[in-house]
Each structure stands twice: as structure tokens, then as C-alpha cells.
Design a protein around this nucleic acid. Structure first.
Length: 154
DNA sequence: GCCAACGTTGGC
DNA sequence: GCCAACGTTGGC
């Protein structure tokens, strides 16, 4: 099966690419996603070996910070069942889980942040949901062409 | 801190 | 099933 490419957003002050790099095995569950469109990608589309851009959002300089690899495909997100967890969802049922997560492993940090501002200036990337107005999806697919184009910007 | 855009909820 | 109200995301 062909590998897929993705973009995954996180707030660097909460969990940035430097946090992932510092984790044991440089690996961490990507949990807490509570949006159905993003859930469908986590649960149904992501495969081991897929690669994703690690995007920093909600910060002074939003942009792509580096690359991660999906090392474990979708499995139930246990944080949804934990009342102590910030992402607890009382409506979700452990017997029929609503929310899923994947495990990601650090691959590398870019030499520089490829900023959202910069990405918006490239007409070759205008098809990306990321640069379209009002898009709030925290996980989105990236085409191989877009992937290669962005890598060449670094 | 503001606010536009969007997804979700719940009354009807 | 509609849609107003609300909460969240995320750039600026």
C-alpha cells in the first residue's frame, strides 16, 4: 500500500516538536482530537510508515516545524474515558469508542520554521486546506506533490 | 485580547 | 429537520 502524507497541528507551548523529540523513544500518542473529520483520518486512513508535517499553531509564528512518522495506526483514545483528563468526553463509550489516536515518532526538525505566511504566497499550495480561510481542521491530508514542494522550500 | 469561521448542541 | 446559541480554533 502506498504511504500517505499528512499535516498535524499542535500548540508548541502545550506540545511542540521539541517535546516529541524529548520523549522516550521520541514517540508519543497523538491524542485529544475531538473532531469527527480528523477522527476519521486517525481511525481509517493513517497507516504505519505515513509521514506528517508537525505544524505549530496558536503561537507567534505559526508554521511547519518538522516531520514525524506514524508508527502505530488508529486505536481508541483512552483519554476520552478519563474524567481527570482535559479531553474527557462523558458521552463516549469504551465499548464503542468515539475517539481515536495514533502514535507518532519524531523524524526531524526543519532548519527553520516554514511559516504559514510564506506557505500562503505559493500558488502551488493554494489547494491546501491549511491556507484556506477559516479552516480549523487539526489533521489534514497533504498530497505527494504538496509534500515535495514544501520540502524544497526548506 | 479580538474576532471570524466553523462545528456542535438542543429547543422547537 | 431547521436554525439560533454557544464553544472552540487559531490567525492577527
Amino acid at each position: 500500500m502506498n504511504m500517505n502524507y499528512w499535516l498535524m497541528k499542535s500548540e508548541p507551548e502545550v506540545f511542540g516538536i521539541h517535546h516529541l523529540k524529548a520523549r522516550p523513544g521520541r514517540t508519543e500518542p497523538w491524542d485529544g482530537v475531538r473532531n469527527y473529520q480528523a477522527r476519521n483520518m486517525l481511525r481509517d486512513k493513517m497507516q504505519g510508515g505515513d509521514q506528517a508535517f508537525f505544524y505549530h499553531s496558536g503561537c507567534a509564528v505559526p508554521g511547519i516545524a518538522g516531520i514525524v512518522e506514524i508508527v502505530k495506526p488508529g486505536y481508541p483514545d483512552a483519554t476520552a474515558f478519563d474524567p481527570q483528563d482535559h479531553h474527557y468526553d462523558p458521552k463516549s463509550d469504551a465499548q464503542n469508542p468515539t475517539w481515536y489516536r495514533v502514535d507518532v515518532r519524531y523524524v526531524r526538525t526543519f532548519k527553520r520554521i516554514i511559516t504559514l505566511t510564506e506557505l500562503k504566497t505559493h500558488k502551488q499550495l493554494h489547494g491546501m486546506a491549511l491556507v484556506q480561510r477559516g479552516n480549523r481542521l487539526s489533521i489534514m491530508p497533504v498530497t505527494p506533490r504538496q509534500w515535495e514542494y514544501i520540502l524544497a522550500l526548506e
